[in-house]
Design a protein around this nucleic acid. Structure first.
Length: 806
RNA sequence: GCUGGGGUGGCGAAAUUGGUAGACGCACCAGCCUUAGGAGCUGGCCCCGCAAGGGAUGGAGGUUCAAGUCCUCUCCCCAGCACCA
């Protein structure tokens, strides 16, 4: 027989909290220390799954913990409600994307409430509400005014299935991050946010952030800084070229980027990417123009992925022209080859087969010379290490690293820093997103929609069927609106914004969600930023997290936010796997429905199980196990049973010690997001109390307080039953004298030659000689010593004693 | 390939950062109790051994009175990046 009816107590507790309005945070409160606890707001995809529980319910444990520690906690929620799935549902079953989204949100709100979370719903933000996206548009305009948004032609990634362009960050292994379709490259005119302007700051500011090294490192890799030099190779006619051709050869130079200018004397050819602009000019003077043109055509048909997978290293020589080495004056051949990327550096490289693996492979295939300039044992092999320069003119004999700057200077080059990160492509040829607040004049020049026309609303009279053209183009209303406001000949922007723009600032809006005059409130931003702790999925390390940092820095530079970083601590949460250890998926039939489990064992047991499953401060993979939920339920039953032992008695030292120990451990571990061990301390406490003949009432209530963040409903119920005042969740956690943790006697293990032979019970401050004497009386120790005189004795106070004999 | 994080029982995991390896929980085993349950209680549960004892933290060396923790080499797993010059 269960000792409590979870459905009944859940209902009662939740009604009580609602009646007391416990979780509406007073942002202006000045008595308590503010703490901004944030988790990534959900996309309203439909029903709540176990991942939502893991994200919200476990973070809620920390919110409740902090409140009982006397903090003024802001723990908000909202919905990242623009996005593709709504549109896909519309296409699939004819639903209106808006209706689909808003119905899902209603259902999810109700489901989230069953978790017993202490979320402040009064500050909810919904990114697809015009009240919200008005400010997304306003911020877009600010970025535009500060030249951080621009429209330009560039090679971009296109998802053929979703019929839209994607940002670089949304392409994973050459596939669309959303649907897994292989992306293709296109050259299109699109809207970009200039995240590259912030590459250096996004990188260096990481150093000071208290994030885990793996998260920071992933961002560093994505930003991909590399330092090198830009060098110039003049194009000249080759010896065999006819005089007629010579005259036609344009007076141009090829700029290359290299991280190894020290190997300049070892350059044996120069390579242009097939996309290189100079090729257009050079093509007509080439003796083998058709071959080169055919090669360029061929690479165009390949995706970047196919290009990188093919390690064959194809390429065609540019016949009729040569490049001149800026330091040696030597004429070297020019090639076009697709192992060089048009999108990185200058789109051209100086090739050094002796000191670069890729050039080595290419040179071998095309029988190009191999010229070693950094000394190594085997002259025939490719050597990428450092050493002494050889065959490098006046620089021979010097260390390659040290000579680098001098070689650059002699070559007339400049030191440059390159970044791997590309500008953020923010326009999408989709319907269900924030309309880009831009209109075009009759000449086709873009203009911002003036602020008085914001929100620039999303039209409803559109055809969602993807045609490769943005659905907004089919809206009559939008056309008429533009003509009405701006005049004849003006046209609307049809693209919408990437939803990552919406989510780059939502945490600012929580601080003033209903403000109709500003995107947020400056005083509140000053008081609450940066977010103290942000928890979310590791998939956002190089997407949302990077975008939000960039966005925030841009706003900081415009003096719109008070901090240069949005988030102080960041924790990437792990994922819950199916019972089979596989990722939960309908395909494997291993999906756990949280509603069913909650119904059977209660919300508290499910929350506790998720807290107990593994450390929350690292992104582990934890298999779901229903027996674990039932174990939590069993534990809760024991807490209920323990109440029968509670009596109105004095709290003994012994009990105080138990409590102090448990509190120290469970508070410390909770602080570090290690709820698994925090809970284990609680389990030990309860077990120890079960061994007592009676439990003092106040001690029992202290146990309830420690339990409250994990099992908020049951703790509330038992709090009521034991005469607690108000809500347990507005009470403060017990504080114990730290001296309670120091015990009168400690057990110290005694080792002989590093092997444990027994232990002694002593006072912590016992003199070392006495400790040693006592240890030497242990029979097991005497046996181990076998009559020999100790050579050395190491005693670490209250920790260990080690007796060393020969 | 590069960078980062890991490798501890049948399983999820602990280990106060150099001081009793395996806390807590699951599963399992034995016993008790019983208005026989997916219930409760007690005990056991890394390996070998009746025990005393010995061996164990992917593997091999090393430093140290003492190593899961530090160093060297090596093998795996995970994540990020990857023809980025």
């Amino acid at each position: 027989m269960p000792r409590y009816d979870h459905q009944e107590i859940e209902k009662r507790a939740q009604e009580k909290w609602a009646a007391l309005d416990l979780y509406t945070t007073d942002l202006t409160n000045t008595e308590k220390e503010p703490y901004y606890l944030l988790f990534e707001f959900p996309y309203p995809s439909g029903d709540l799954h176990i991942g939502h529980w893991y994200a919200f319910a476990v973070t809620d444990i920390y919110a409740r913990y902090l409140r009982m520690k006397g903090k003024n906690v802001l723990f908000p929620i909202g919905f990242d409600s623009f996005g593709l799935p709504a549109e896909n549902a519309a296409m699939k079953n004819g639903a209106d994307p808006k209706e689909w989204t808003y119905q899902n949100m209603d259902r999810m709100r109700a489901q989230i409430r069953t978790m017993g979370t202490s979320l402040d719903w009064s500050k909810e933000v919904v990114t697809s509400d015009p009240e919200y996206y008005k400010w997304t548009q306003w911020l877009f305009a600010k970025l535009f005014e500060h030249k951080l948004v621009e429209r330009r032609e560039a090679p971009v990634k296109w998802c053929p299935k979703d019929q839209t362009v994607l940002a670089n960050e949304q392409v994973v292994d050459g596939k669309c991050e959303r649907c897994g379709t292989e992306v293709v490259e296109k050259r299109l005119t699109q809207w970009f946010m200039k995240i590259t302007d912030y590459a250096e700051r996004l990188l260096t500011d990481l150093d000071a952030l208290p994030w885990r090294e793996d998260i920071k490192d992933a961002q560093r890799a994505w930003i991909g800084k590399s330092e090198g030099a830009k060098l110039s190779f003049k194009v000249v006619p080759s010896a065999e070229a006819s005089s007629e051709d010579v005259a036609a050869i344009p007076d141009v130079s090829i700029e290359v980027f290299t991280t190894r200018p020290d190997t300049l004397y070892g350059v044996t050819y120069v390579v242009l990417a097939p996309e290189h602009k100079l090729l257009n000019e050079l093509l007509e003077v080439l003796e083998n123009e058709p071959d080169v043109a055919a090669y360029i055509e061929m690479t165009k048909r390949k995706t970047e992925r196919e290009r990188s997978e093919n390690k064959e290293k194809t390429g065609v020589r540019l016949e009729g022209v040569m490049a001149v080495n800026p330091v040696s004056g030597e004429k070297i051949p020019l090639y076009v080859a697709d192992y060089v990327l048009g999108s990185y550096g200058t789109g051209a490289v100086m090739a050094v087969p002796a000191h670069d693996e890729r050039d080595f492979v290419f040179a071998k295939k095309h029988a190009l010379p191999h010229l070693q300039v950094v000394a190594s044992k085997n002259e025939e092999e490719c050597f990428t290490g450092d050493g002494t320069l050889v065959a490098s003119g006046e620089f021979s004999g010097r260390n390659n690293r040290e000579a680098m700057a001098d070689i650059v200077a002699k070559a007339g080059g400049v030191a440059v820093t390159n970044y791997r990160i590309r500008d953020w492509l923010v326009s999408r040829q989709r319907y269900w997103g924030c309309p880009i607040p831009v209109v075009y004049d009759p000449e086709g020049m873009p203009h911002l929609v003036p602020p008085e026309h914001l929100p620039w609303t999303l039209p409803t009279d559109v055809d969602f069927t993807p045609t490769g053209k943005a659905p907004l183009a089919s809206s009559k209303e939008l056309h008429e609106r533009v003509i009405r406001i701006f005049g004849e000949g003006w046209t609307p922007e049809y693209d919408t914004l990437d939803t990552f723009v919406d989510s780059s600032w939502y945490f600012l809006r929580y601080l003033d969600p209903k403000d109709n005059h500003d995107f947020s409130d400056q005083a509140m931003l000053k008081k609450w930023l940066p977010v103290n702790r942000y928890s979310g999925g590791s998939e956002h390390t190089t997407m949302h997290l990077l975008y939000a940092r960039f966005f925030h820095k841009a706003l900081y530079d415009m003096a719109l936010v008070p901090t240069s970083e949005p988030f102080n601590e960041r924790f990437n949460r792990g994922i819950i796997l199916g019972t089979d250890g596989q990722k939960m998926s309908k395909r494997w039939g291993n999906v756990v429905n949280p509603d069913d489990v909650v119904k059977e064992f209660g919300t508290d047991a499910v929350r506790m199980y998720l807290a107990f499953i593994g450390p929350y401060n690292e992104a582990g993979h934890y298999p779901w196990n229903l027996d674990g939920v039932s174990a939590m339920r069993r534990f809760l039953e024991r807490v209920v049973a323990l109440m029968e032992k509670s009596a109105d008695t004095e709290v003994s030292q012994e009990v105080l010690r138990m409590l102090a120990k448990a509190e120290a451990k469970s508070a410390g571990d909770s602080e570090r997001f290690k709820f698994n061990t925090a809970l284990s301390a609680l389990m030990v406490l309860v077990r120890d109390m079960e061994g007592l003949t009676s439990v003092p009432n106040t001690a029992y209530q202290d146990v309830l307080k420690m339990l409250a963040p994990f099992a908020p409903h049951l703790a509330e119920e038992l709090w009521d039953k034991t005469g607690g005042e108000g809500s347990i969740h507005s009470s403060t956690r017990p504080v114990y004298d730290p001296r309670l943790l120091e015990t009168d006697t400690v057990t110290v293990p005694v080792q002989v030659n590093g092997k444990r032979r027994g232990d002694i019970s002593i006072a912590p401050d016992m003199e070392e000689v006495n400790v040693v004497a006592m240890a030497l009386q242990l029979p097991t120790v005497l046996t181990a010593i076998a009559g020999k005189t100790p050579k050395r004795v190491v005693y670490v106070r209250s920790k260990i004693i080690n007796i060393v004999v020969d």
